[in-house]
Design a protein around this nucleic acid. Structure first.
Lengths: 224, 224
DNA sequence: CGACCATTTGATATGGATCAAGCGATGTGG
DNA sequence: CCACATCGCTTGATCCATATCAAATGGTCG
């Protein structure tokens, strides 16, 4: 069972193993897992907590972040449906994680999966592959900090378009404040950047969360 | 044998396997490796090149980075003696790497180590562990971007002090320009930040590369 | 010794932060 | 069902930290 903190926010009863489109955890279909729902802004785990579970986003979205003394948060990554996160090799988390919006996560016991990986080289390989994928993602995130504000936002939209496998319209799962926290900018600057990209005919802001990509390649060029 | 590009810069003949303090690669002492020396600024590999080797720094230091269209480089990580880098799960590199100063690297064939990991669960585990360690490092790097210049530099010094296992004097392996590229600042701002930290009695800049940490905890506090 | 390059310091410019106000969507209570 | 409170987003005005431009200093190597 999950720790108290996880259950604290539960709004639907845990169900036994992968329902519908949750999919197996890391392909380890023989391992039991269960789903928990988290309301918006619910904490999933905190920095330096014991890492008891690995997580897979079934739906909704999750942010991981570091909190600074000043209270400011640097968001390290967003996780969307299909993503696995919280893959700690050591016992404790080095980031905090919480739900951006109402989200369902598939949890699996870390100890069980690590034990499985000891015997099943396929499972071991998947652990490595997933961790490496997250590493690449964070490396790409760092690249954005070499760019000015508008270009960072362009890069962010490109990333989201790819990860949400959007056609030409992206449904952003997070608020401006979260985008700002991810890009190291303020809400105001993010908002102005959207406006600027709109004036460049690169996007149309249909609603604040729904962005029409009118010129995807312009966005790629800007953020390159 | 390494690709032409690697040999291009070789200044000492490759030797068979771990000499002196090079240590085994990932503990896989049964695997052959060889050492190559790279002069300052020599390219080790480029973005999108085939990843034929994994690397361990024997001595010297290495930077990995992404180059932007503008020509600007965002340094993603520094690697110092003992660090392993270039652990790609897929066939190609997603970063460029080059030697910061004259450096000796232990190379091992990716295919050989991956094949070993298929059978030796200990090797597989080490691959995962090392990749996860690099992930944590990059996550910590991102955290710095939430801080103002002086605090970023403080955080950088703390990181270097830890990784170079320094007592109270750090010998920085890289120039100001590289620090700037790592922190998303300009050389001038980095230089001024050193001066400011000196005025705060946190450090003494003995030479530009040799930093005396007069108040380590002040540095930690600043960057927290 | 002298040239070169890295670093530091100084003066000014500017992109993004901050402060402040308005706007629009959403939900709530009368 | 509408009036109004709330919250997230946008826009505007001003400020400031860092970039840029420029020059002086200092260390290194031929």
């Amino acid at each position: 069972m999950p720790r108290a903190g996880a259950l604290r926010h539960q709004t639907t009863p845990p169900r036994a193993v992968p329902p519908t489109h949750a999919g197996p955890f890391l392909g380890a279909s023989e391992l039991m897992g269960f789903i928990i729902s988290y309301p918006p802004d619910a904490e999933i785990y905190g920095e330096e907590e014991q890492a008891e579970y690995f997580y897979k986003v079934v739906n909704g979205s999750v942010r991981t972040y570091k909190t600074l003394k000043s209270g400011r948060r640097q968001i390290v990554a967003f996780h969307v449906p299909g993503d696995v996160f919280g893959l700690e090799t050591r016992g404790e988390h080095t980031l905090s994680a919480d739900a951006v919006a109402e989200s369902s996560l598939l949890l699996i016991k870390r100890s069980a999966l690590v034990a499985l990986a000891e015997q099943d080289k396929d499972a071991a390989g998947r652990l490595w592959t997933l961790t490496a994928a997250e590493l690449r993602q964070v490396q790409d995130h760092i690249r954005l900090f070499a760019l000015p504000a508008r270009e960072r936002v362009a890069g962010f939209l490109v990333e989201m378009a790819q990860r949400l496998s959007a056609n030409d319209e992206v449904e952003l799962p997070m608020a401006r404040q979260d985008i700002a926290g991810y890009l190291g900018l303020t809400v105001e600057t993010v908002s102005r950047s959207f406006t600027q990209l709109e004036r460049l005919d690169a996007i149309t802001v249909r609603t604040s969360r729904r962005i029409l990509l009118r010129n995807y390649f312009a966005l790629v060029r800007l953020s390159a």
